[in-house]
Simulated scan of single mutants.
Amino acid sequence: MLREATPDDVHLMLSWRNQETNRQVSKTSHEITPDEHTRWWSAVRVDPTRRVLVYLRDGVPSGVVTFFDLRLDEPRSGSWGFYLDADGLAGRGETLPAWLEVMREAVDHAFDHLGLERLDGEVLAHNTVVRQMNRRFRFVEGSPRTELSDGREITVIPISLHRDNRRRR
């Protein structure tokens, strides 16, 4: 289940985002400071083009889904990303089922709740597991591009999914 993030979730979100597993597959790989996170949270709370949701697995907060660059005029589109409580889910042996569930719920939220026609995102080229999962959900990869981020060169691959191509439950 997805629900709107609240100020009570801020510390959990920061702890999950700073887990090594999540930093390795993010464009920003440094450890996020509490001040950086506070600035981010203050900005997203008042930005009408952003949504921050908490993913609940069996009632337990277990991840974050963000929607950004939302364009709610025609054609309706937006971008998204997510990260999970990798350490907590791994400890409970729930990583794969949670991963499938959060992706399904995020895609459903984008198309059924936000009413988007197209959902965009990005994945790092070395993140082959996520790339495979994206294909399973029928995301299409675009042309890779090289960027510098946190002092390292990364290859970023844009992805997109059109409402008509989504996998239905």
Rank of each mutant, 00 (worst) to 15 (best):
L56D: 00
R118T: 15
G63A: 06
V44N: 02
L116F: 07
R17Y: 06
H126L: 08
A125F: 09
T95V: 03
R76S: 13
G115H: 02
L124G: 02
L100R: 13
E36V: 01
E20M: 11
E36S: 07
A5W: 04
P7C: 14
M133T: 08
R131D: 10
L119A: 00
R51G: 01
H30Q: 10
S42Q: 15
D87R: 15
P61L: 13
V130I: 09
N127Y: 07
G88W: 08
D8S: 15
D112H: 14
L70F: 02
V64S: 00
E20I: 13
R131L: 14
H126Y: 05
V129D: 13
T38G: 08
T28Q: 10
P97S: 14
P7D: 07
R45L: 12
T33S: 14
T66V: 01
Q24M: 11
R76I: 04
A86Y: 13
V64M: 03
A125C: 09
Y55W: 11
R138W: 08
M103G: 04
E101M: 04
Y83T: 06
A106V: 02
D85S: 05
S143W: 08
E36Q: 07
V107W: 08
E122L: 08
T128N: 06
T21A: 12
A90L: 04
E94D: 14
L84P: 09
